[in-house]
Amino acid sequence: MRIRIDKDSCVGAGMCALTAPNVFTQDDDGFSEVLEGREDGAGDPLAREAARACPVRAITVADD
């Protein structure tokens, strides 16, 4: 699994960090980031749920 955040689309709603706090966080400006070392999602089923929860669809979760 590979996780990508479109930084140009992200509005900082924080739904990803609320849904999958072991995978996502927010940077100092409030925009979403994947936690260091978690770019592959580490099989966390909440990563896909977080992508669905994003109100602007800025998160893409793809299988390798």
Rank of each mutant, 00 (worst) to 15 (best):
M1P: 08
R2A: 11
R2L: 14
I3T: 07
I3A: 04
I3M: 04
I3K: 03
I5E: 12
D6V: 10
D6I: 12
K7Y: 13
D8H: 11
S9M: 14
S9P: 04
G12V: 14
A13P: 11
G14N: 12
G14H: 12
A17K: 12
A17F: 09
A17P: 14
L18F: 10
T19C: 04
T19R: 06
T19K: 05
A20S: 04
A20W: 02
P21N: 06
N22A: 13
V23C: 02
V23T: 13
F24V: 05
F24M: 04
Q26L: 13
Q26S: 08
Q26N: 08
D28W: 11
D29K: 09
D29S: 13
D29P: 08
G30T: 11
F31E: 11
F31H: 12
S32C: 13
S32K: 05
E33A: 09
E33V: 13
V34M: 09
V34E: 10
L35C: 08
L35Y: 08
L35D: 10
L35H: 09
E36Y: 10
R38V: 08
E39P: 09
E39H: 10
E39M: 09
G41N: 07
G41R: 05
A42D: 15
A42I: 11
A42S: 13
A42G: 11
D44I: 00
L46N: 03
L46D: 04
R48A: 06
A50F: 00
R52Y: 04
R52G: 00
A53M: 15
P55D: 03
V56A: 04
V56D: 07
R57G: 09
A58D: 06
A58W: 06
I59D: 03
I59C: 03
V61H: 02
A62Q: 06
D63F: 03
D63S: 05
